[in-house]
Design a protein around this nucleic acid. Sequence first.
DNA 1: CCAAAAGTAGTAATTACTAGCTATCTTTTA
DNA 2: TAAAAGATAGCTAGTAATTACTACTTTTGG
Lengths: 219, 219
Amino acid sequence: MQSKYLSAEERRQRTVEAVVALAGTQNPSEITTAAIASEMSVTQGALFRHFPSKEAIWQAVMEWVADRLLDRIDRAAEQSGSPLAALHAIFMSHIDFVIEHPGVPRMMFGELQRAETTPAKKVAHTLMKRYAERLAQKLEEAKAGGEIRDDTDTQAAAILFIGMIQGLVMQSMLAGNIRAARASARGVIGIYFRGLGAGDGRRDMQARKETKQSKKKVE
Amino acid sequence: MQSKYLSAEERRQRTVEAVVALAGTQNPSEITTAAIASEMSVTQGALFRHFPSKEAIWQAVMEWVADRLLDRIDRAAEQSGSPLAALHAIFMSHIDFVIEHPGVPRMMFGELQRAETTPAKKVAHTLMKRYAERLAQKLEEAKAGGEIRDDTDTQAAAILFIGMIQGLVMQSMLAGNIRAARASARGVIGIYFRGLGAGDGRRDMQARKETKQSKKKVE
DNA sequence: CCAAAAGTAGTAATTACTAGCTATCTTTTA
DNA sequence: TAAAAGATAGCTAGTAATTACTACTTTTGG
């Protein structure tokens, strides 16, 4: 049993977690400071001892999301044996991430569609850019390694990759079962990889890779 | 110069248009009845002579979106010479639709991510289902006609199609220029069609189609 | 014992919505 | 055909509820 008096840093951490949890069950834009306080068993006023405004809370939340998601996909990519395998691993770890935190896509959609440029939106935007950069890099590596067609439109492939996840998540959120995203993932990424010219969409692109393997450039 | 006293029906129509216009420049969940009234040069109270609640306004708006979008894609599909061409036409007319009405994707995202089941969300959900049905039908026809691989996962292909549009729209909204979606469309759909096994992703799938043309089944 | 965390009890602003009156259009009647 | 009557659209001026945020006091742990 722990004290109800926490350090400022820990309280901020708990606040972020409370928001992420709440976003899993309700529309982020309807999350009030009262609801956040209630979720973490604290009075409303206490929140403002640790954040100057609600906007600052959202910024912290989006930074949490950005850090965790990028860390996840970076680790997934590192553990992969080839650029194409890395793309596959990024995709699956992203799906796992939103299954663990169903509030995340809701928050991302909510922030990104905002018209004004809030700090939280800026963080979300930066996250998207970093994400797209990583995809572009892997796509280029895959081209160089002969894993995908080298006339692939990198920009378009990155957009489609992100859209693929969005579509999958939204579809399964609508079905009321985020976990369903995992089951549908295989079919979707199969079409995607075939679209890139990666064999029949699975990782048996090896043959094609071998023929070009001398070109081990990675950039 | 027209009167400021309109028939109830026309006033409702104007209300819907005002909301659609506002959603083009701001977060839909932040659109207040005061803002709607102001947009259509009417006092706030006047709105409630025509709608029993704000929720009813949103329902009317989503019905407007559903009717217009489905009508658009149906007409686009009808004018196409083959199922694959129809899919292409649906895609482009959808992109054109959101360029004309930039508020639409914002409203769709906003409604669909809502946790409670509001009437407006139900309408949006139904729209998605109808849309997916039409895609599935065209995909099956394309399989039967030999335009795409007949081992294509229809469900996955439909999800990816919708995600493709979502990704394109979100990306160009972030870039602050919805019209950019049109320019990026070609590359994205190219990868998609290749993923379905449709030649190199353009409409030069004709050759393959001809070889199977005896099988004119359309179901 | 004291610095920092949490509680108490407010605030002004904004929200969707309403009651009662006025302006305008439409239909009926002399 | 013109004016009165009836119907309907819009305005004015509110309401209670909810919102993010604050000043001040109390509690806690090192």
